[in-house]
């Protein structure tokens, strides 16, 4: 790890000013991605600005939404009574991610900004990584791709966005609130991430120095049922091979409202408007669910190592939707 200076921020304005002024300065929150990548030599900041003591923690309810402070930890958010009551699939996704020890450190802001798990990205001994070293190529495409993405990929990068909680968050049209030197702005999570294209090193629309201060999460409508299902090799403590987060309102056997997103398959948390279109105003049947899953995975691009994930992702989504429909019945 390269030597760095540690600064504990006294207020958000100071933090934003410090980081914005210097491309070699980064934020430090829970540290579970940042320190890991610094140890690997992938991230090499000269200065870290610790934002964990800023008053950015906690969940407040506005009636139709909750506002989650950026440094709220995953465990804290999972324990929030409104989340438990009104956003159960967020709680499910949170508790299926990482381990309790990591969830006690990892913050919601940091979770959204977590970096790819790709071992080609994380190992500087690998020369070809467009995300780490733009223009150098992508070793993952010809390597072991089982844990990589099949949606939103490009010829330059197939790295997965591995967050669980971002899946229900993106399904809910959450808004990321950030503060920059030019003031605050809100960014819909659906527009927050950038697909790799030919610039995989640019992962989101944040400008350097912009600080996530909160995530605003709309509540599910009354009568909605939600579920997050995660499929992986181990029963616990592993990233998803595939996952699905969905919320449905079903009235008299008809789906009146649907929100669907997928994990484990996309270069970003994958909102599936295609699946939602199929589901909306359709009968809550297995056939509908299958059609939705087919629509969700249309356009998937696979490699030999990821070919099975198309079918698995469809089955994961179908099971998720069936579970929701079954729970309602």
């Amino acid at each position: 790890m390269r030597p760095f200076e540690y600064v504990r921020a006294v207020d958000a304005g100071q933090a934003v000013a410090l980081v914005s002024a210097d491309p070699d300065t980064s934020y430090l929150a829970g540290g579970t991605t940042q320190l890991d990548l610094m140890k690997d030599g992938v991230l090499r900041p000269a200065r870290l600005v610790d934002v964990t003591r800023l008053p950015l923690s906690g969940v407040t309810s506005t009636g139709s939404a909750i506002r989650v402070g950026a440094t709220t930890t995953m465990e804290e958010l999972a324990a929030d009574p409104v989340v438990i009551e009104r956003l159960p699939f967020i709680r499910e996704a949170l508790l299926l991610g990482a381990s309790t020890q990591l969830r006690n450190l990892a913050t919601i802001g940091g979770n959204l900004l977590q970096r790819a798990r790709c071992r080609y990205f994380r190992d500087p001994a690998v020369e070809a990584c467009n995300k780490r070293d733009p223009g150098s190529g992508c070793a993952a495409i010809t390597g072991f791709a089982r844990m990589h993405a099949i949606l939103g990929t490009s010829d330059h990068c197939i790295a997965l966005h591995a967050s669980d909680v971002a899946v229900p968050l993106v399904a809910l049209d959450s808004v990321v609130h950030v503060q920059g030197v030019d003031g605050p702005r809100g960014i819909p999570l659906t527009e927050f991430y950038r697909p790799p294209g030919d610039t995989p090193h640019i992962e989101n629309v944040l400008r350097h120095g912009e600080l996530i201060t909160a995530v605003e999460v709309p509540l599910l409508p009354e009568g909605a049922r939600s579920h997050y299902l995660k499929v992986r090799d181990r029963v616990s403590y592993e990233f998803a091979l595939t996952s699905a987060g969905a919320a449905l309102v079903i009235q008299d056997g008809l789906i009146t409202s649907a929100r669907v997103a997928l994990g484990g398959v996309g270069t970003l948390p994958w909102r599936s408007w295609e699946a939602e279109r199929v589901l909306r105003d359709a009968p809550a049947t297995r056939e509908t669910f299958r059609a939705a899953a087919d629509a969700a995975l249309e356009g998937a691009r696979t490699l030999p190592g990821t070919a099975f994930k198309v079918d698995l992702a469809k089955r994961t989504l179908v099971r998720t939707l069936e579970t929701i429909a079954g729970a309602r019945a």
């Binding site: 540690y6 430090l28 540290g31 990591l102 450190l105």
Partner: peptide, 14 residues
């Protein structure tokens, strides 16, 4: 609260 001490900077624990 339980945490992994390997991904926490000592400086953060003051």
């Amino acid at each position: 609260r339980r945490v992994v001490a390997c991904l926490t900077l000592a400086a953060q624990c003051e």
